[in-house]
């Protein structure tokens, strides 16, 4: 599709991740030996090298560790969204995800509480984020 968001090339490592997103769940592998929550999904624990992993569900709540407001892009899709926010988000259990935050850029700050928003597009579902105050009334 022209001007569409680039779609992940799903592979054996990532199949569960994207399948679960389509079911409205954020899940990642967890090491059965040392307990590490592993993101991005992969087949071996980068801490203890165990390959016994179990998929676990996360709440999708997190806080912004860092972010950037993008004013330029060579990507056909993102060039239509300028300016937009990309952030590193601390999700629970020391998991850090890079994602798009759908927010007015001037509202951004480090430490902002955010929550996952399942964004259907291009036949998949993207784990985007929004400020938690946009979803729950936390005045």
């Amino acid at each position: 599709m022209a001007n569409g968001r680039r779609v992940p090339v799903v592979d054996h490592d990532s199949q569960n991740f994207w399948d679960h997103l389509r079911q409205g769940r954020l899940s990642i592998p967890r090491c059965s030996a040392c307990g590490l929550y592993i993101y991005y999904p992969r087949s071996i624990c980068p801490r203890c090298f165990s390959n016994v992993l179990t998929w676990v569900e996360l709440s999708g709540k997190g806080t912004v560790y860092s972010y950037t407001v993008c004013y330029r892009s060579s990507d056909e899709y993102w060039a239509t969204k300028l300016p937009y926010v990309v952030a590193l988000i601390e999700v629970e259990n020391n998991v850090r995800m890079l994602s798009y935050i759908d927010v007015e850029p001037s509202r951004m700050y480090i430490g902002m509480p955010v929550i996952i928003r399942f964004t259907p597009a291009e036949g998949t579902v993207f784990p985007d984020f929004v400020p938690i105050s946009d979803v729950f009334n936390v005045e």
């Binding site: 968001r5 680039r6 779609v7 992940p8 090339v9 799903v10 592979d11 490592d13 990532s14 993101y39 991005y40 860092s66 972010y67 950037t68 993008c70 330029r72 892009s73 060579s74 990507d75 899709y77 993102w78 969204k81 937009y84 990309v86 952030a87 590193l88 995800m97 890079l98 994602s99 798009y100 993207f126 985007d128």
Partner: peptide, 27 residues
């Protein structure tokens, strides 16, 4: 600035619009 094709671990970065490489340095 388009970022690498969304293959292997890049599927967890490119679809979210991070311009490359400047976006990483900006973070």
């Amino acid at each position: 600035l388009a970022g690498r094709p969304p293959v292997l671990m890049q599927q967890f970065e490119t679809p979210f619009g991070l311009p490359s490489p400047i976006g990483g340095y900006a973070l």
